[in-house]
Design a protein around this nucleic acid. Sequence first.
DNA 1: AGCATTCCTGACTAATTTAGTCAAGTATGA
DNA 2: TCATACTTGACTAAATTAGTCAGGAATGCT
Lengths: 138, 138
Amino acid sequence: MKLGTKGRYAVMALVDLAYYSKGKPLAVTEIAQRQSLPASYLEQLFATLRHKGLIASTRGHQGGYSLAREAETIRISEILEAIGEPIETTRCSKTSDTGCVGTKGTCLTHALWAGLGQQMHQYLNGISLADVCERRLT
Amino acid sequence: MKLGTKGRYAVMALVDLAYYSKGKPLAVTEIAQRQSLPASYLEQLFATLRHKGLIASTRGHQGGYSLAREAETIRISEILEAIGEPIETTRCSKTSDTGCVGTKGTCLTHALWAGLGQQMHQYLNGISLADVCERRLT
DNA sequence: AGCATTCCTGACTAATTTAGTCAAGTATGA
DNA sequence: TCATACTTGACTAAATTAGTCAGGAATGCT
Ligand code: FES
Ligand code: FES
């Protein structure tokens, strides 16, 4: 049950973006250096975040990335889902081929894992980028 | 952010054990069949669960495994930790070589992930095997 | 005693996922 | 025109997961 670098990096980068960008777009290399993340990897992540509409890009000289919306309105749960790091506590939902669906609909532990997933989602959905920036965390 | 089979299988098996064992020990193959889990894999898992003191074994004919303690006193969080599926939302804690510890102690998102981890642990710590058996889940 | 049953252990492996790198191209402003 | 910076896709090394397999050891039943 671990969080991968993809999700962590994405959130770190967006927090950095929200924190240091003053209206102007920031270059990937700048963010990568400041957060000590691999720049080429971050470029990949930013590409998908852009496709998902969380950030906007400006090309050419003085270009870079900026948040597509206000930091207050971007929730952590959104970022993780956009980057492809979803909360998967159950294994039965989608395909059902690898799923643990028994004869009686769901396995004995389904409700447990579903509850855990809901708990996590609730937490991450209640926190915005701005909250992290200003350290408003419980 | 996904739960591996190791953790899920361990909990499923212990729930089965708590649910179907009436004082008598149950064989691994029986549990594996009922929950449709790979038996040889489950044997491995049960070995480590025994070493951690969560279950007890009886060898020979009519042997099998039984809970070492009352189902009411075994928390899900214990099982996951025992089986080696810990909650790892941060990456800085232990070794610090792969950690994302920046110059100023902790990275910008540390508190966020720590909060998530605490949330998860709290949830799983508040639920016992007996709770799952009797479907007392929120 | 002998035999079936069941736990017990360690080594080994195939497949998947993660965590990236790298190279080449495109757009932009100075 | 040139340096800057985004954009894309292909490729890969390493780690982790999810098991299998073979053999051994204890126990109770007949
Ligand atoms: S987790 Fe949904 S059926 Fe097992
Ligand atoms: S998660 Fe602890 S310092 Fe980044």
